[in-house]
Write a protein that binds this DNA or RNA. Sequence first.
DNA 1: GCGATAGATGAACAGCGTCAACCTGCCGGG
DNA 2: CCCGGCAGGTTGACGCTGTTCATCTATCGC
Lengths: 210, 210
Amino acid sequence: MTNGKKRLGVGQHHGDLRRSLLEAAVALLAQGERPSLRQVARAAGVSPAAPYHHFHSANGLMAAVACAGFTALEEALLATLDRTEKTAEQAPNMSATYVTFALAHPEHYRLMFDPELEPADDALERVAQRVFGHLVGAVARALPEAPRVVVQMRARQIFALAHGCIDLATAGALAKLEGPHAPRGVAEEVAAATTILLRAPSSSRRPNPE
Amino acid sequence: MTNGKKRLGVGQHHGDLRRSLLEAAVALLAQGERPSLRQVARAAGVSPAAPYHHFHSANGLMAAVACAGFTALEEALLATLDRTEKTAEQAPNMSATYVTFALAHPEHYRLMFDPELEPADDALERVAQRVFGHLVGAVARALPEAPRVVVQMRARQIFALAHGCIDLATAGALAKLEGPHAPRGVAEEVAAATTILLRAPSSSRRPNPE
DNA sequence: GCGATAGATGAACAGCGTCAACCTGCCGGG
DNA sequence: CCCGGCAGGTTGACGCTGTTCATCTATCGC
């Protein structure tokens, strides 16, 4: 049967094709277009069927690329966390980092939330969950006395606000409303909105729901 | 399966193919999948080349479908506006209507914000602009004393929050955070967040922007 | 009655994802 | 030392896609 340990292949034909494919895909994604399987294969210098020895479909490849995106995003968030001392500033700073990352890699970010991505991809699921966890954690630290359900609610709202800003900005819809278009400005505004949502009273019942 | 031999003359389609194509596209979209040009043509009972006499590309067809979506959304928003008397409730109610509409037609809503859609489509541009205008208007009425720039800012934040909630919910990412998943609950939560953002002081400066 | 023309057609093209069959160079076991 | 297995590549094919083109036809203005 298969021995789990990966042997070090002495410089085979193409070294590590799996990694090459991922890098090629990220590079093409950074060009601004979502690449096809065949484009990625061409960029890596192999035939269109070669990727199937490393991913079980084009979707699987893209899921791995998305996974790499989440990993990079996590690193950025952790770096921000490291250099932010006061807990009150963590959440808004992480919001800003989140938005900045997404606007720096718009096509890659869109891919990470593509609803057609392999929903059963374990690695993707896990790293995404971890990223969300960091965001929720920052919110929890900003609201040390709040009950869990309130923390979750605020985290959802902040997350939705950031994600919405990103999606609208990269879709060009934000440009149709007046306001900052530069990534820096958008990130600033999301950070500001984050503090607003964190300072809101936890029980804001609203009248007449319909 | 429809064995639809159109016996109304061989070469000619009945009255208004353009409308039939749009209706077919909307119907397929409601099935949950984004249809291809050929699927739409098949559903309308014509050849794959027929749509090109009414739209200059598949993208053009989809832009028209998106346009119809914005029109329907506008009607829903205007209906809500009609039945909401107190100006303070207009904005949250319109947020809720917006979210409810989007979650009722998720695939159609996604299409409306597809960044690959014909960016030079005039009709689409106009109706989208009108919809955004209704949202900004409701915010303006909720903040009668606020300067224009603050109104715009709050409108952007509220819009981003609603759009983000919708996108995360339809992408399945909201389900990974605890909280309400049902459309009704999501709409409620967005409405609540809307009132929070409206009640926030207009000058919330935040420290240390990096 | 007779073009002209709008509108539909089928055939064809390249590109896509995917699969099956085949080839090849490296490995460990006899 | 040979030899089989296999991981990892290739080629070629299938059906799908968007798009174009030459062609046919029904209808309308004259």
